[in-house]
Nucleic acid binder design. Structure first.
Length: 450
RNA sequence: GUGGCUAUAGCUCAGUUGGUUAGAGCACCAGAUUGUGGUUCUGGAAGUCGCCGGUUCGAGUCCGGUUAGCCACCCCA
């Protein structure tokens, strides 16, 4: 059995056999069709990006999770040799200049900065795998597909509403009804944190703790804030401000004022106003505790929540400063990303997949004195008539051929004996009923496809 | 990164206070009169008990380490 090498794929990565692939294609087909219906155009970018492109965009956590690629050949040898003499030893920069992409948003930002003749409002979708050096868990992989939609070049919240609407449409078409698009605003969060007297350098720590409010509860978050060195009275202040935000009309009152959070609140109200007229209408929900870890978000932020899944089905937000990290001029942008594997996980658990046709519709079997060439020629005719046909390659007893047909779960076996060859027919056996009849090839092709 | 659980045949799992050749079901292979599957019956093949070390007369079983997987956190899609 074993020859010492594991035959499993690396942890957090998977092989996809036919049933998996068919399910994935089903979901991807819906995603692609819906995204295109919104006018998004496709983009594909390389698996590998320069580390300079990737580093410093996601925050310290993200940088840690980047896969680095070792230099190749002589460059690696020279780096190692050179490092031996250096006082500090080898550094990461000595060994690697490239890495695997961590998401699709940063590559998009690079593309927008690189191709100046893109449409003023560049609406692109991108469905490709990304890699994170994370510890795998349920619904979390080291290699996974993201299905991104983004709009660059406009600060209008119409774009934010459109990306929400696009992912909501996808989920609804796949059969989801109960998901929420949790929505918050980075500026609002910053204002609340500052208002509670928490210094700017502790802002991101505070936000991460806040994000756990629904899991840990108020006391839990207070403890966590305390551990991060935030005074109890400030934590209390922050929590009570958040509690106030949950009250009906809180967002409206904040928006009408001229405080630091006013603009964020007003933007959220505008966004909800637009969203109400699309597929996201019943799903978009204000959640003042939603924070999100990625550091590039500047405005509205989103996360898709569904019962029975600890993580999210997808997430996104506005990142008006990211493209400007690749060129002089800032370009506003907003996007949303669906996690294919997460969607599939929940669909699998809830048995949301329709019947998905797969594999041959008929196995062509032949008796021992029929030459293989005759079988190939019949198979060819059946295929020309639209059927999916597998030819049993070996010369084997009929029992074995039919037994194999059974294991394939193919609905029909077409049997070719000397008589059938002479008549230009096949004996078509329905393996579900056991009924067998002699048919012309065109007739067999038709029956098999019913 | 933290905590817990698990590791025995291709798969799902038994395996007694440590005691002879480690079992079952499913799957696989071969038969049950002549080249027709599924059900049934008979037989067969298949395991270095994750890996390394320790305790012991003796280890699948106990102990330590290690690796991998699962679950819950953390974080995220």
């Amino acid at each position: 059995m074993s020859k010492g090498t594991s035959t499993k794929p690396p942890s957090g990565m998977r092989d996809f056999l036919a049933p998996d692939v068919v399910q994935r294609r089903h979901v991807l087909g819906v995603v692609q069709r819906v995204y295109e219906s919104f006018g998004f155009v496709p983009l594909e970018t390389p698996t590998i990006e320069n580390l300079g492109t990737l580093l410093g965009k996601y925050g310290p956590e993200g940088d840690q999770l980047l896969y680095r690629l070792l230099h190749r050949r002589d460059k690696l040898k020279r780096a190692i040799a050179g490092g031996a003499d250096q006082p500090g030893g080898l550094t990461e920069q000595d060994l690697a200049a490239e890495g695997l992409r961590y998401d699709l948003t940063v590559p998009l930002a690079r593309v927008v900065a690189n191709y100046k003749d893109l449409p003023a409002f560049y609406k692109r979708y991108q469905i490709q795998p990304v890699w994170r050096a994370d510890r795998p868990a349920r619904g979390r992989f080291r290699e996974f597909y993201q299905c991104d939609v983004d709009v660059t070049g406009t600060a209008s919240l119409v774009a934010d509403a459109e990306v929400c609407c696009a992912v909501a449409t996808v989920l609804r078409e796949l059969g989801f009804a109960d998901f929420k698009i949790l929505t918050n605003h980075r500026e609002l969060l910053r204002a609340l944190v500052a208002d509670a007297g928490i210094p700017a350098e502790q802002e991101s720590l505070a936000l991460i703790a806040l994000d756990k409010l629904d899991k840990l509860g108020g006391d839990g978050v207070k403890d966590e804030l305390g551990e991060k060195g935030i005074a109890a009275e400030r934590a209390d202040a922050l929590l009570s401000k958040l509690e106030q935000m949950r009250a009906p009309g809180a967002l409206e009152r904040l928006a009408e004022g001229d405080g630091p959070g006013a603009r964020g609140a007003a933007e959220l109200l505008e966004l909800f106003g637009y969203a109400a007229h699309g597929q996201a209408a019943e799903h978009a929900t204000f959640d003042p505790t939603l924070a999100r870890g990625l550091s590039y978000y500047t405005g509205p932020i989103f996360e898709i929540q569904v019962d029975g899944l600890a993580g999210s089905l997808g997430g996104g937000g506005r990142y008006d400063n990211l493209i400007g990290m690749f060129q002089k001029q800032q370009v506003p942008a907003v996007g949303f990303s669906l996690g294919l594997e997460r969607v599939l996980l929940v669909m699998e658990e809830r048995q949301m997949f329709p019947e998905l046709g797969i594999g041959p519709q008929v196995l062509l079997c032949r008796m021992g004195d029929v030459p293989a060439s005759a079988a190939i020629s019949v198979a060819s005719a059946l295929r020309a008539a639209g059927a999916r046909v597998e030819v049993y390659a070996d010369a084997a007893p009929m029992k074995k051929q039919l037994s194999y047909a059974n294991s394939l779960e193919v609905a029909f076996a077409a049997i070719l004996g000397p008589q059938e060859v002479a008549d230009g027919t096949v004996s078509l056996k329905d393996l579900r009923t056991g009924q067998q009849e002699s048919c012309m090839i065109s007739e067999a092709a038709r029956k098999v496809q019913d």
